[in-house]
């Protein structure tokens, strides 16, 4: 009873999730909960299973065991990538993957939350509302001036921002953001933290990051993963003071 209620109030609920690749346990009995309008930062050494966890949530990898629930009731292990995306889970990849042969504008337009069916897409014409929304998103990610440029011509940091813009356009309830500040300057990093904090006021955000100063900037709850399981949870200060975390991840 209390367990059911516990699930009901969550945006993302992972319980006892395990997956093995050729006998190697990438995720081992992992349990994580993210509440609505909450940000969670996930840190951990390479190979801790951070990206695999995202693959499981977004339907790219099927877990061998365990429960993955979205919004307290939808079983994500039964759905494919497109269905999960349409439920309202957006993902930003570690390596920025934008559509390079499309313009910045078209990248956002494709991501914009609209019917995804073949014929709805074929006969789609952007109405004033859509144009206003795309403009607003481009303003937020500071790419409005470059809206007609091909995404291929953006700098690395700008591609990261474009991808965050695409996430916003999808209007997801849950955002999974994998290393958003890799390759960004310090100033860009601060801006990104601000933007993500802003987004987390209304949506759930899971950020995977190595950059400790960025995680500090986010000021959110932190979970440290290692070898596919939770090593420590709490505020960044609590987690980074944890002797096990220091030994296994932070060093010294």
């Amino acid at each position: 009873m209390s367990e059911a209620r516990e699930k009901l109030g969550t945006m993302l609920y992972l319980d006892g999730v395990s997956v093995a690749f050729d006998g190697f346990k990438a995720i081992n009995n992992l349990s994580i909960i993210v509440h609505p309008a909450e940000m969670l930062a996930i840190i951990g050494p390479n190979g801790a299973g951070k990206t695999t966890m995202m693959d499981i949530i977004t339907g790219k990898t099927r877990p061998d065991d365990g429960q993955v629930l979205f919004d307290g009731r939808t079983d994500l292990t039964k759905l494919d990538e497109a269905a999960i995306a349409n439920l309202g889970i957006g993902r930003k990849f570690q390596k920025p993957t934008v559509f390079e042969s499309h313009t910045v504008w078209d990248n956002i337009e494709m991501a914009l939350k609209k019917p995804r069916g073949i014929f709805a897409t074929l006969f789609y014409t952007a109405d004033d509302e859509d144009i206003a929304r795309i403009t607003e998103i481009l303003e937020t990610v500071r790419l409005l001036a470059r809206k007609d440029d091909y995404a291929a011509n953006l700098s690395h940091g700008q591609k990261q921002w474009l991808e965050i813009g695409m996430l916003l356009a999808q209007d997801p309830k849950l955002l999974l953001v994998d290393e958003p500040v890799a390759g960004m300057t310090d100033a860009e990093t601060v801006e990104t933290a601000k933007l993500l904090k802003d987004i987390a006021k209304t949506r759930s955000v899971v950020v995977v990051e190595h950059d400790m100063s960025f995680v500090r900037e986010l000021g959110s709850r932190v979970t440290c993963l290692a070898e596919g399981a939770v090593l420590a949870e709490g505020s960044l200060d609590q987690v980074s003071a944890n002797p096990v975390v220091i030994e296994r991840y932070l060093g010294r």
């Binding site: 977004t58 990538e81 993902r91 990849f93 559509f99 499309h102 337009e109 995804r116 006969f123 789609y124």
Partner: peptide, 28 residues
């Protein structure tokens, strides 16, 4: 020239990314 055409090019260039945007790549 339609949005579907842009999605087709997206499938050509980054198939799995298109899937994570919620498009059914197999139907495209």
């Amino acid at each position: 020239n339609s949005k579907l055409g842009k999605v087709m090019v997206a499938v050509r260039d980054a198939e799995s990314r298109t899937r994570f945007l919620g498009y059914r790549v197999e139907y495209v």
